[in-house]
Structure formats: C-alpha cells, structure tokens
Amino acid sequence: MAIFNLKINGENHQVDVDPESPTLWVLRDHVKLVGTKYGCGIGQCGACTIHIDGQAMRSCSLPISAVADKSITTIEGLSKKGDHPLQKAWIEHDVPQCGYCQAGQIMNAASLLNNNPNPSDADIDAAMNGNICRCGTYVRIKAAIKTAANS
C-alpha cells in the first residue's frame, strides 16, 4: 500500500492503495466516483475512459502509480453542470439505450473534439472504434458528436 495524492476533477484526493491498482478501481471504490465504468479490464471496450491531462486513457489498464502527478478528469468532472456540448448533444439525440457505455463514449468523444474540433465521419470512426456499445447506438453517437462539434 502507498499513499497517493491525486488531482481529480480539479479537487485533491489522498488515497492509500496498492500502487498497481488500476485507476478505475481507485476512482470507483476509494474516491466513490462511479461514473467511470468497468467493462473488460483489458483496455478493449472503452467503458472506463477518463482524461489524463486532457487525453483519453483507459483507466482499467492504468496503474494509479502512473497517474499520481497528473490531472485526472472523469465524466463527473467533464463539466460543472453536465452541460458540456457533448452531454447536451447526447441528451438531445436521445443517444443512450442502456446507457452503461455512454460515459466512456462521451469522454472519448471529448478528447477527440479537443484534438480535432471538426472531425469527419472517418475521423469519428477511427477515434471511437475502441469504445464498444452493445446496444448499437453508434449512429446516434456519430450524430451527437457532429452536433457538439457544430455548437
């Protein structure tokens, strides 16, 4: 066990955990931020996507020791009032079905828009391909990303 001082969504948190512990489980079990989801544990589904210094990362495969001095953003911190253009577009397009993967989809899309404010369809496909949606909401996710990009 080791003590880590974490900066999550602009706030400081101190946790005493196994240094190998994936950031996902530190967020969920210790910081009680459960918006970041567990899907596969091997970085293949994208449900656990968070931002490390603004870039999308898979928190299930990221030991907490690797992010201790970085700025961590989760879905809960993407915007203060849940009004990030992507969050608004997600609601407007009624994107979610079960909704479980959507926090990861939104976080990944937010990183995409940070890097590429006006992505083409091919850009969206390439950037979002690591995020699985079992309900099949892909068509609406693409539409929502375009709406957010245009807002």
Partner: peptide
C-alpha cells in the same frame, strides 16, 4: 426523451 438521459450523460450512479 429518456427520463434518465441527463443522469447517464453526467455519469450519475444508476447501475
């Protein structure tokens, strides 16, 4: 619209 849509988009505990 989905009554849980805003909660899902904000990552609120639902599941």
């Amino acid at each position: 619209l989905n009554v849980d849509g805003p909660k899902i988009a904000k990552g609120e505990p639902l599941f």
